[in-house]
Design a binder for these strands. Structure first.
Lengths: 219, 219
DNA sequence: CGAACGATTGACTCGTCAGTCAATCACTCC
DNA sequence: GGAGTGATTGACTGACGAGTCAATCGTTCG
C-alpha cells in the first residue's frame, strides 16, 4: 500500500513508533522483540534488519529525544534577554509539553532510561549529566547576577530542579498526581515557583513571571 | 561454626544481607539467584527454603526499610513542638543518615523499587504513596499555620521535597554528586533550604534552622 | 542407638527469548 | 524478460536462569 514504496527510513520509524507503544505499555524488560514486530505489523526478523539489538531500539528512542532536549536547554541558555528564572520556565515548559505531546515516549525515556540508571542509564549517564550541567550553568549565572542566592551548589540546585520536573511527570505516569489538560499549565508554574522561591534572593509573594511562551518544539 | 546452631532467623538474615550486596552490585534483574546463594555461602536451593521467589527477597528488603521510614515520618509529624520546616529537616536527616548508614540497602530500595515503579514499584505504589501522603500532610499543616505559602498544592510540594532527597541519593549512588562524610550534612541543609525557601512565606536571607538533631534511627 | 524432622544440598527440568539465517519476495534496471 | 539487490519472512538454535525435588545431613529426643 501507500504507493508501492515504503522507504527504509519509514519502515525504521514504523518500528520505532511501535516500540514506543510497546515499551510504554509493557516495559522494556517485560516485552519481547516479537511484541514490537507484531505491533509494527512486521516480521520478527525485520527488527534485526534495522537494529542490531533490542537494546539499540531503546537507545535510539532515548537519544533521539534526549538530544533534542539538551539542545533546547542550550538554546534557552543562549538567550541573553531572559532572566535565569525565565530560562528555567522555558525549560520546564518544553519538557512538560513534550510529555503532553507524546506521553508514551516520555514515559519510556524517563521510566526505562533516566530513572533506571543502573540497568541502562549507565550507558547514558554522560548524556544525562550534560543536561544537568547545562541547567547548573544557567543557575550559576543567575547567582552571579544576584538573581539567585548563592548558598546552594548550582549542581545540586540543578538536580533538584530537574528532579521536580521528573517527579511531576512520574506522578502523571503512575497516576499519583492528577493529570489532564489543566494540570499541565498549572504544574509548570508550581515547579518553577517551588524551586525558584527557594533560589530567589528576594522573596515571598506570589509566583514571579507566568505566561512565558514555551520553547519551540522538537518535531 | 558459631555454636552448633544457626537459627532460622539468622540464616534468613544472612541471605537477605547477601542479597542487598548482590542487588546493589549487579542490579536485581541482572543477578541470578545463584549469585545470592554464593554470596551468602549457602546452597542454591536454600534460598527457596526461606523465600518463595527471587521477587520475595526484594519485596522483603524493600518493605523492611520502607516501613521504618513511613513510621519515622509519622512519628515526626506527631511532634507538635516542631515547626513544619523542622519536621522536614528531621525527615531529610533520617533518610540521608539511612543512606550513610547502609548505602547498599538504600541503593536497592531506590534504584530497584522506588525509581522502578513500572516493574516492581507498581506492587508498592501504595506504600510509596503513603510516604508522600504523610509528607503532604506536614506541608499542608504548615500552610494552615501560615508558615508556608499556600499557592502550591501540598501533594506536589511533597513530591518535589521527596524528589529532591531521592535525587541527592541518586546523585551519590551514580557518582554524579560528590559524596563523602562532609557532603551528607551539607546536603541535608541544601535540600531543606532549596525546598523551604520556595515554600516559606517570608523569604530571603540564609538558611533557617540548622543543627536540628536527626530522628532516631532504625535498628 | 536410632527414629523423626527440619535444614541443606545441587543436579535437573522447563519455559522463555534474543538473535540467526536460509529462503522468498518485490522492485529496478539493463 | 531476467539478473541483481535489498527488503522481508518466520522457523530455528542456543543460552540462560528461575524454580523443583529427591537425596543427604545433623540435631534432638525417646
Amino acid at each position: 500500500m501507500a504507493t508501492a514504496r515504503t522507504t527504509a527510513a519509514e519502515r525504521r520509524r514504523q518500528i520505532l513508533d511501535a516500540a514506543v507503544r510497546v515499551f510504554a505499555r509493557q516495559g522494556f524488560h517485560t516485552c519481547r522483540v516479537s511484541d514490537i514486530a507484531d505491533e509494527a505489523g512486521v516480521a520478527y526478523g525485520l527488527v534485526y534488519h534495522y537494529f542490531r539489538s533490542k537494546d539499540e531500539v531503546l537507545d535510539t528512542l532515548f537519544l533521539e529525544r534526549w538530544d533534542v532536549m539538551v539542545e533546547v536547554i542550550e538554546q534557552v541558555d543562549a538567550r541573553d534577554e531572559l532572566s535565569a528564572r525565565e530560562k528555567l520556565t522555558a525549560i520546564t515548559s518544553f519538557i512538560v509539553d513534550s510529555y503532553r505531546h507524546d506521553p508514551d515516549l516520555m514515559k519510556v525515556v524517563i521510566v526505562e532510561v533516566t530513572r533506571a540508571a543502573n540497568t541502562f542509564g549507565r550507558t547514558h549517564l554522560d548524556a544525562i549529566n550534560r543536561a544537568y550541567g547545562s541547567i547548573a550553568r544557567i543557575i550559576e549565572a543567575g547567582m552571579r547576577d544576584g538573581e539567585f542566592r548563592d548558598s546552594i551548589p548550582p549542581q545540586f540546585a540543578a538536580m533538584a530542579f530537574y528532579g521536580a520536573i521528573e517527579q511531576a511527570l512520574t506522578g502523571w505516569i503512575f497516576d499519583m498526581l492528577p493529570a489532564g489538560e489543566g494540570a499541565f499549565e498549572a504544574t509548570k508554574v508550581h515547579i518553577v515557583d517551588t524551586i525558584c522561591g527557594g533560589l530567589d534572593r528576594a522573596a515571598a509573594g506570589g509566583p514571579g513571571n507566568e505566561g512565558l511562551g514555551s520553547a519551540s518544539h522538537g518535531e
